[in-house]
Simulated assay, not measured.
Amino acid sequence: MENRLRIKTPDGKAYEVDRWCPHANTDLSSRGVVLGSKLVCTKHNWTFALDQGGKCTSADATINACLINDW
Rank of each mutant, 00 (worst) to 15 (best):
G12R: 14
A14W: 14
A14I: 10
A14Y: 13
Y15G: 00
Y15R: 04
Y15K: 05
E16F: 05
V17M: 00
V17T: 04
V17P: 00
R19C: 01
W20G: 09
C21E: 02
P22V: 14
H23I: 02
H23C: 03
H23L: 03
A24V: 07
N25K: 09
N25G: 05
N25Y: 02
N25L: 12
T26L: 07
T26H: 08
L28S: 01
L28A: 05
S29I: 15
S29E: 09
S30Q: 10
R31E: 13
G32L: 00
G32E: 00
V34L: 02
L35P: 04
L35W: 07
G36I: 10
G36L: 08
S37L: 12
S37T: 12
K38N: 10
K38H: 15
L39N: 06
L39P: 03
V40P: 01
V40I: 11
C41A: 12
T42M: 13
K43I: 06
K43T: 07
H44L: 13
H44N: 12
H44P: 11
N45Q: 15
N45D: 15
W46A: 01
W46C: 06
W46T: 09
W46M: 10
T47I: 10
T47E: 05
F48Y: 15
F48L: 04
L50T: 00
D51E: 13
Q52L: 09
G53C: 09
G53H: 07
G53T: 11
G54I: 06
K55A: 13
K55H: 11
C56D: 04
C56R: 01
T57S: 08
T57E: 11
T57C: 06
T57K: 11
S58G: 08
S58H: 04
A59S: 09
D60C: 13
D60L: 10
D60K: 12
A61T: 04
T62G: 08
I63D: 03
I63N: 08
